[in-house]
Design a protein around this nucleic acid. Structure first.
Lengths: 230, 230
DNA sequence: CGGGATATTGACTCTTATCAATGCCCGTGG
DNA sequence: CCACGGGCATTGATAAGAGTCAATATCCCG
């Protein structure tokens, strides 16, 4: 039986067409195939990949590094809505103007795709649009979950949830390498960097984590972390 | 020149195919046309339209009334990620399980579409998917804006922004009718109902709004409200 | 080895949550 | 038509959690 899920999840759409081909070429140790033209770009730490209020003529795929998606208030207050890791797509918008900016957290390689060239490559035929729909739906769900986190969880719960999310994406070895500084974590969680730091200290005092420098976290008690983070 | 925006915004996709036809039939004073079968449903105030962890086999369009999209923590804390008004689509998910619930704020009529029947009606052909992509991208943007609101704005700014959003959707007459109680507003803004009430009182004291009962708000100074809400 | 950026910790403040009392509005029934 | 009752909303007093400001401390990186 066909369901909503099978539309966006069935194998025919999942290995991201048409980006997979480009990723094959952009990443070492992979075989090149035909596909639309992606423009490889490299950004230094803290460099802006694309900015708010610019035309939204391109979308991007992370090849290596980490990208933060930011929104700013006029007075400088900042909210990070997502961190993107290798393989993630970002930068699509419902209209011609971008409503967020994207910056490299560390040195980052991306491939940029102009909509123009995607269209030229036959992108209007269903598979690409369905893939993009699936990615966008996942992004929407993630952002809704983040809304619950920021709107209703306390500082300790937020930091615990953050560590769980990072652990999830880092191949579950019990050691989490954080690419971003405390300030970025704070802006992702709707806290200040001091509070984030204190919550790390509290998790350490509880015996849930061990810190090895500021950026390397050993998860000692994953069950406890899960209990705190949900 | 074709851009990202033209894909999802060009006129050929905008009058929502295939839902427009159904809306035509479900709403009074409109002419019926051919289209996939939508199931009209009516829900009483506070009734659940669809629940978290259920199969996500349907999507919905609001015909009349207001719908709130909720996520709950095990201990009962609640976050509302959106209010949907007539014409809005909701209920689509990237996989088979729903990750939120939807409830009627007041008595509400919706039309439900089974994915099965949408597919039977030829939905795989591009227009519908593009329409859904556009709606999902707009939802994602709205949720990101909400994240900035909840993560970085203070209580007064949040309530001001909420009133602006409601005014925007109510045909800009300077009078805003709020369908939802203070508790729902609070859960939408990541506040308590008492704080929401106090901020209404403060806006009144500032001469920005006038209250006529709890649910009818006269906007007296829209410029000031905008200054506060952004 | 030194210096700048990043992080931690402490003392104190302030916003918002919590708990509690009162008030208001509207529908229902006497 | 008025009185009553129940859900909402407002207001007040107090507490708690996170923010702010400031002083070290630590970690990279050259």
């Amino acid at each position: 039986m066909l369901t909503q899920a099978t539309i966006s999840q069935s194998p025919q759409f999942r290995p991201s067409f048409p980006f997979r081909h480009v990723l094959d070429r952009a990443m070492p140790g992979r075989r090149a195939e035909a596909g639309p033209v992606g423009i490889p770009m490299t950004f230094a730490r803290n460099a802006e990949i694309c900015g708010e209020a610019e035309p939204s003529g391109r979308i991007y795929m992370v090849v290596s590094g980490v990208v933060r998606i930011c929104k700013l208030l006029p007075d400088g207050r900042r909210q990070i809505s997502a961190f993107h890791m290798p393989g993630d797509l970002f930068g699509f918008e419902p209209d011609e103007i971008r409503h967020f900016s994207a910056e490299a957290v560390v040195q980052t390689k991306v491939v940029a795709f102009k909509w123009q060239s995607l269209i030229a490559a036959g992108v209007r035929s269903g598979a690409f649009i369905r893939e993009l729909l699936h990615v966008t739906m996942k992004g929407l769900r993630h952002t809704q979950e983040q809304l619950l986190l920021i709107g209703r969880k306390n500082a300790l719960e937020r930091v615990a949830a953050f560590l769980l999310e990072m652990a999830d994406r880092s191949g579950r070895t019990g050691i989490v390498e954080l690419a971003m500084p405390r300030h970025d974590i704070a802006d992702y969680l709707g806290l200040t960097l001091e509070t984030v730091s204190r919550m790390f200290a509290e998790l350490r005092a509880l015996g849930v984590i061990k810190l090895e420098g500021a950026r390397r976290v050993h998860v000692l008690d994953i069950a406890r972390l899960i209990a705190l983070g949900n």
